[in-house]
Amino acid sequence: MLYDLRRADVRIKWLVTALLATLGLSYVFGALMVALYAGFTPQHVAATYAGPEMAMPMPPETTVVVQHPMSMTDFDKPELHVVDTDLLIQDTHVHVPMYGIIAAALSVVVIGLSLSRRLSLGLIALLFAAPWFDFAGMWLTKFASPRFAIVTLAGGWAMAAGYVIVAVLAVHQMWLSKERT
């Protein structure tokens, strides 16, 4: 195949390297954002996306008041970040197209790597499937069961794994491999 990153012009290699570095930076901050707002455990993810909508308490027939004492430290407790349906629609609308473009960009890099056809197809499938799992998990957690939080976590880790695999292979084949020119 004509498109082979090992033997590509140095300008192409530099472009791919810069792309991978930029995506890597965005992934690092993406992970930090997940840590801030959703967490990395199934319990945290379930609480973020299932939220109070899973309980759906019925309004009382007459307005009632419940009182309980609290201390100043109670005001300082970290609040749970809850993603409601409206926000999840917006997140899906904004993020999924971007994930698609990132997966396509990384897939173009995969095509230029010296890999078996089967491995290339598998990597491309992983790059596109990961965001699907990520968002499918969020929607299923909200509307089916909090247990689906694990799907979101799997999707997130799969995105990270896909990026790391492509980045390591690309950098190795472009700059370190003996077969490069």
Binding site: P59, P60, E61, T62, T63, V64, V65, V66, Q67, H68, P69, M70, S71, M72, T73, D74, F75, D76
Partner: peptide, 24 residues
């Protein structure tokens, strides 16, 4: 921060009660 807002808007308070009104 919420505690700072509480200190400003309820100056000198040292005991607090949360009053949750569940609306019909």
């Amino acid at each position: 921060k919420r505690p700072d807002a509480v200190r400003t808007l309820l100056p000198g308070a040292d005991a607090f009660t949360a009053r949750e009104v569940h609306l019909s």
